[in-house]
């Protein structure tokens, strides 16, 4: 240590901070990658049982090695890029799809103390990162030089931009209640049992947020960006091998992310539902898994929305609901019932 400190001289503090941060990033990203891999298995199993099938059960006991087998298979497949594609952008597309999904985890508090970056503008940072995620899809669709991919990316861009507004407004309600943009403080504002969690006073916003989250992650029933019955596989139709796998990883990473956010904003993060039970990171993980299950359930239950209906739902239903509820919450805060909204 002493020698290293001497080697870097005045840069030593900066090097130390960078080193520590890198270690923390790895400590977040590695479990996340595991969670993503096993979410694919969970999805196939859950949907399998819902459709009275068994799902994958060949590789490993209960199919537990299936995600690894899938990963190895995709890793060894050839990556083909279309002749007239924009080569550099074609490979930047998947990277841009997955990077924001990981970057947003920087501000998510797992626990009272376990957070990579405890910044005051945490909520804004999350909104910024999730809004950047759309570039992966747009660039992939355009760079593929294919009509199906292009149509898929246009649909996705319009859909994500529309639902982002409803999502942002839903979070405005949260920050009105919490009086802060810091995610740790938002969670602490919900302390004292599950009846203090924000999903109760902000119930319409919670529902709007969760449905918008499904739309933002391009999951069924809002998966028109892929829409295999209309445009083959949408924006990733030209991708193969690992480049294709990264789009899938990005989709599942985004599911975990939006569920972690919903947990933090509306379900009290790491706080326990009853005051006599201790707060712990386990509550955070349990709530997150509970919400993730809904994503799988939706996919097995609902048929795909028609595109114009998606747009109508976003603009004409969700945005008015959120606007009305924000004004309602703001008004109630001025009355003697204001304590209900804090």
């Amino acid at each position: 240590m002493e020698m290293l400190a001497h080697l870097f001289g005045s840069w030593w503090p900066a090097v130390q901070i960078t080193g520590w941060t890198l270690i923390k990033i790895v400590a977040i990203v590695l479990p996340l990658l595991g969670a993503i891999a096993y979410l694919t298995l969970a999805e196939r199993k859950v949907i399998g049982y819902m459709q009275v099938r068994i799902g994958p059960n060949r590789v490993g006991y209960f199919g537990l090695l299936q995600p690894i087998a899938d990963g190895v298979k995709l890793l060894f497949k050839e990556i083909i890029s279309p002749t007239a594609s924009s080569k550099a952008l074609f490979f930047i597309g998947p990277v841009l799809a997955i990077a924001p999904a990981f970057a947003a985890w920087a501000v998510i508090p797992f626990d009272g103390t376990k957070v990579l970056a405890n910044i005051d503008a945490g909520l804004l940072y999350i909104l910024a990162m999730t809004s950047v995620a759309v570039y992966g899809v747009i660039i992939a669709g355009w760079a593929s030089n294919s009509k199906y991919a292009f149509l898929g990316s246009l649909r996705s861009a319009a859909q994500i931009v529309s639902y982002e507004i409803a999502m942002g407004f839903a979070l405005v309600g949260v920050l009105m209640c919490a009086n802060s943009l810091n995610l740790g403080k938002i969670v602490m504002g919900q302390s004292g049992g599950f009846w203090h969690w924000y999903f109760i006073p902000l119930f319409p916003l919670f529902i709007v947020y969760f449905i918008s989250a499904v739309a933002e992650t391009n999951r069924a029933p809002f998966d028109v960006a892929e829409g295999e019955s209309e445009i083959v596989a949408g924006f990733h139709v030209e991708y193969s091998g690992m480049a294709f796998a990264i789009f899938f990883l990005a989709e599942y990473a985004n599911i975990w992310l939006v569920c972690a956010l919903a947990t933090t904003m509306f379900l009290g993060g790491w706080l326990s539902p009853f005051p006599f039970l201790p707060d712990s990171i386990l509550w955070f993980l349990a709530k997150m898994c509970f919400l993730v299950f809904f994503f799988l359930w939706f996919r097995a239950t609902f048929p795909r929305y028609r595109y114009d209906q998606i747009m109508r739902l976003g603009w004409k239903v969700f945005i008015p609901i959120t606007l009305v509820w924000i004004i309602f919450v703001g008004g109630m805060m001025q009355t003697s019932f204001g304590y209900l909204f804090h």
């Binding site: 503008a121 804004l124 909104l127 910024a128 809004s131 950047v132 570039y135 747009i138 931009v161």
Partner: peptide
């Protein structure tokens, strides 16, 4: 930080997406 994040949120996340569109 507010201006920086607002720049990403508004220009990168919304305006440029529609522009690219």
């Amino acid at each position: 930080e507010f201006l920086a994040i607002a720049l990403v949120l508004v220009y990168v996340g919304a305006v440029m997406v529609l522009f690219l569109f």
